[in-house]
């Protein structure tokens, strides 16, 4: 049996851990609210952008732009991996990393060489450890993501795709579905495939458009092809930004869940330790009593 003091110390220790996990839970929930609000504000932009671009893409011939054209020979692949900077959020980062490495392995098996561009420290460390070529990494930026960051990541891969340094670009991020569900998702960034089914909410976004479609033929300024050349690279940026926003919201949601769990486990542990403490205390009292009674008996003897 452990000594009374040991158990007492352990209870105090677990109590302190609980305080920390509880505080982290609350911080995560506050941050999640902010991140969720950002996604809400971003959604109208993304939806509208897709609509406009889909309309435009229908008007233009198949391979009108280098970003739409598929390269015939596929030798190089870039993976943009978005993870969080910090751990303590359950299996969230692990899931994204597993997904990304699986994707990278598939591409390697298909005879392509894979390079990584990472946003978030966890992903960077994993990719580096796995020995992949590192294109760029932005660590410790998840706390202050903005459109400019998405822009610089996107510009890098766009540049690579246009100069034929890459033949495929994928984006791996943690999608924010709900508070309890943040699955990793991989998305083919380049070449841009049929815009209609690029992402899940596409169907819903396009539906209302059918009803109030253009009430007359569109005037394009400048010409369609030039306009497309302006809009497509920006669309890639929009996609990357979406990945960043989603990952950041997912991270906080995952951390909230993980910390909630941890707090609950602490409670359980404290309960069982308290039980042990009381038992130990009682055992100590009993043995003391036996000593006293035994001593008295001996004196009387």
């Amino acid at each position: 049996m452990p000594s009374l003091k040991d158990v007492k110390m352990k209870i105090v220790g677990v109590g302190k851990t609980k305080q920390i996990t509880k505080a982290m839970n609350m911080v995560a929930s506050a941050k999640l609210r902010g991140a969720q609000a950002r996604i809400e504000r971003f959604r109208p932009y993304a939806t509208k952008y897709r609509q406009v671009l889909a309309d435009l893409a229908r008007k233009v011939e198949g391979n009108a732009h280098p970003l739409l054209a598929e390269h015939e020979e596929k030798k190089n692949c870039a993976v943009v991996m978005v993870t969080s900077d910090r751990g303590l959020c359950g299996s969230f980062n692990g899931n994204i990393i597993t997904q990304a490495l699986k994707l990278a392995k598939e591409k390697t098996d298909a005879g392509m060489s894979v390079s990584f561009a990472c946003v978030g420290r966890k992903g960077r460390d994993a990719a580096r450890k796995a020995g992949y070529n590192m294109l760029t990494c932005y660590a410790d930026r998840m706390g202050s993501i903005d459109f400019a960051l998405a822009g610089s990541v996107a510009d890098e891969v766009i540049n690579g795709y246009e100069t034929l340094a890459f033949d495929e670009v994928w984006l791996v991020y943690g999608e924010f579905v709900s508070m309890g569900h943040q699955p990793p998702r991989s998305l083919c960034l380049l070449p841009l495939k049929a815009l209609e089914d690029v992402d899940g909410d596409g169907g819903a976004a396009d539906a209302p458009r059918e009803g109030n479609g253009p009430h007359c033929e569109y005037v394009y300024e400048p010409k369609e092809e030039k306009l497309l050349a302006e809009l497509l690279p920006r669309y890639v940026r929009v996609q990357v930004y979406r990945g960043l926003l989603d990952t950041s919201a997912s991270e906080h949601a995952a951390r909230m869940a993980a910390m909630d769990n941890a707090t609950r486990n602490c409670n359980e542990l404290i309960n069982s330790l308290t039980l042990l403490y009381n038992k130990t205390r009682q055992a100590a009292i009993t043995s003391e009593l036996i000593d006293i009674v035994g001593g008295a008996e001996a004196l009387n003897g």
Partner: peptide, 19 residues
């Protein structure tokens, strides 16, 4: 401020897409 010059849009304008 359109790429090909400034332009004004009044109500009931024809459908237009401009950078």
């Amino acid at each position: 401020p359109g790429v090909e010059g400034e332009f004004g849009v009044l109500p009931q304008h024809v459908s237009l897409l401009s950078a």
